[in-house]
Design a protein around this nucleic acid. Structure first.
Length: 519
RNA sequence: GGCCCCAUCGUCUAGAGGCCUAGGACACAGGAUUUUCACUCCUGCAACCGGAGUUCGAAUCUCCGUGGGGUCACCA
């Protein structure tokens, strides 16, 4: 039997880091074993703007390279696969059907107790410091009688939890976990009818019905679902279906707290500042409620390589061996196994992700770096929408000059905006490097010399500056700093001679002149 | 509160009784190289939650604590 796993995101409008990690484990597991990975949309309680809220999730998956064999169509409007539709909101009739089957076979019963009664019982149990275990009176009636009552007055349908049993879950990550059925209240599987007459299923039941229908063999999900598992296992049994293998992966924390998708941490001042330097306006930032350190979109906007995020997330809670950190996707697919997934929750560490991003960037071909960095220059407004050959050529040179300094695509702005617009002078650096005793005169003199240079390539420039310094009895560093700040405005950047060559003679001379006016 | 899960450097992890003086990586701190920064290369800092037990021997097994988390909905 082929391995089939699934990931069931809710259309929330963004792809959460923790969710991706879980999805990735599912995906890796099937890709390594030749199975199928299914995307099923868990939209039972929200039907408004569904496609719109789903798209960012599908886009995120595509960006990361996590493809699905069955699930929604790329536009999020339809379904592809033998078990369509893959939207739970479109599958309610199947849940009702399954619930009716359980009612007729005596595994489920209509609960005639009123909400008031249940609440009172619950309070009484709490007062007595005992666990409240719901058992509706109808569970002791015959199936025929329950069917009759349900047809007369449809109420919420509950699963009849067997008494005095032990449910054993052999979890692929946790090992053997046992639960006593006497502590599990009869769960509602189908709600009482809505005003319009539809009876909607509850998550715990819908999931089981879908997993059975879609022939899911391995349920790999977040550890928070472990407590739901016995109820679901009971539902499988009642349905007469084979219980799948379960694997509960540890949750992802952030600074020690759960990186919950329900309470996304707000952007910090630094993170906001970062986006602003990329050319984002406050309105644009505010409009993107999905931008947040816990969402995939945030890293995408900052110019992280998707391969780095995948590598990072794959290593969070799973290890290949005692030393390997850099694990490209093909290797991860080949070696991933649930047996090496950790039990303890892990903390999401932006530093390590950043480091991996730089490692992947180092290996990226120059052309790809150019393509990846271009949108940032465009967004900053220093490069037009249409990229002509000279522009692309210049950007290529800039990226090349940036070298390993470029860790994220957005770094092109940090290290290279001044190639595309007049420098914004860092006054502290100006004071330190240019407005110094004797420096303006030296700059002026060297500028004169540059005018007569036979060519303005970096080798010639380097040689000429060395010569100049030697004649003047200066250290190269002195002129270097002064020239850098005078021509780029800032104290850090690509190699000086790279900068000068890319800027070109006319621009360099003009900038030195401008800087001297300020000095 | 009941039930369930978890517990090694600040962080991610290796470790399935002797290979552990606890290894690697990120971060951090020093240093080397260098025209700044980045890269690279060295070096350093830094952990088995506590207590009993089992054993010749325990980070590893057992029990009891402690701490953290999850879950107990006609939410997902």
């Amino acid at each position: 039997m082929p391995i089939r796993t699934r990931f069931a995101p809710s259309p929330t409008g963004y792809l959460h880091i923790g969710g991706v990690r879980t999805a990735l484990f599912n995906w890796l597991f099937t890709r390594g074993k030749g199975g199928q990975f299914i995307l099923r949309i868990d939209d039972t309680d929200s039907d408004r703007n569904q496609a719109e809220a789903l798209l960012p999730i599908l886009d995120g998956f595509r960006w990361l390279g996590l493809n699905w064999d069955e699930g929604p169509t790329p536009d999020g409007k339809g379904s592809v696969g033998p078990h369509a539709p893959y939207f739970q909101s479109k599958r309610n009739h199947l849940y009702v059907e399954a619930a009716m089957k359980l009612l007729h076979s005596g595994y489920a019963y209509p609960d005639m107790m009123t909400k008031e009664q249940i609440d009172a019982d619950r309070k009484a149990a709490e007062a007595a410091k005992k666990a409240y275990v719901h058992r509706g009176p109808n569970r002791d009636l015959t199936a025929e009688e329950n069917v009759r009552q349900y047809q007369a007055t449809p109420k919420a349908l509950r699963l009849k939890v067997p008494l005095g049993q032990t449910v054993v879950i052999d979890d692929l990550i946790r090992g053997r976990v046992e639960f006593q059925t006497d502590l599990i209240g009869d769960p509602v599987i189908l709600r009482a009818p809505d005003p319009d007459g539809t009876c909607r299923a509850l998550y715990n039941f819908a999931t089981v019905v879908d997993d059975v229908a879609m022939e899911i063999t391995h349920v790999i999900r977040a550890a928070e679902h472990l407590s739901n598992t016995p109820v679901q296992a009971l539902a499988y049994q009642a349905l007469g279906a084979k219980v799948p293998q379960f694997a509960h992966v540890p949750v992802v924390n952030y600074k020690g707290d759960k990186m919950s998708k329900r309470k996304l941490p707000p952007l910090t001042k630094d993170e906001l500042a970062k986006l602003r330097t990329l050319g984002w306006t406050d309105e644009q930032i505010k409009a993107r409620t999905d931008l947040n350190i816990a969402t995939v979109a945030y890293y995408r906007e900052l110019g992280y390589l998707p391969a780095a995020l995948v590598n990072y997330l794959g290593r969070l809670g799973w290890s290949l061996d005692d030393k390997t950190e850099f694990i490209p996707l093909p290797e991860m697919i080949a070696h991933f196994g649930l047996d090496r997934v950790n039990n303890a929750p892990g903390n999401f560490d932006q530093d390590k992700l950043f480091w991996l991003a730089s490692e992947y960037m180092k290996l990226l071909p120059l052309e790809d770096k150019v393509t990846g960095a271009m949108p940032y220059l465009q967004k900053a407004g220093v490069v037009g929408k249409e990229i002509d050959a000279p522009t692309r050529g210049k950007v290529t040179k800039v990226i090349e000059a940036c070298g390993d300094r470029l860790k994220l695509f957005s770094d092109v702005l940090a290290y290279g905006v001044f190639f595309f617009k007049k420098p914004e002078y860092d006054m502290a650096a100006m004071t330190k490097r240019v407005k110094k005793e004797g420096v303006p005169a030296l700059l002026k003199e060297y500028a004169e010399q540059m005018k007569s240079l036979p060519s303005f390539d970096k080798a010639t420039l380097e040689q000429s500056l060395h010569q100049f310094c030697e004649q003047k009895g200066l250290k190269l560093a002195d002129m270097n700093h002064a020239l850098r700040v005078a021509t780029t405005g800032v104290p850090v950047g690509p190699g000086l001679f790279d900068c000068l060559e890319i800027l070109g003679k006319d621009e360099v001379l003009a900038r030195i002149e401008a800087a001297l006016k300020m000095a």
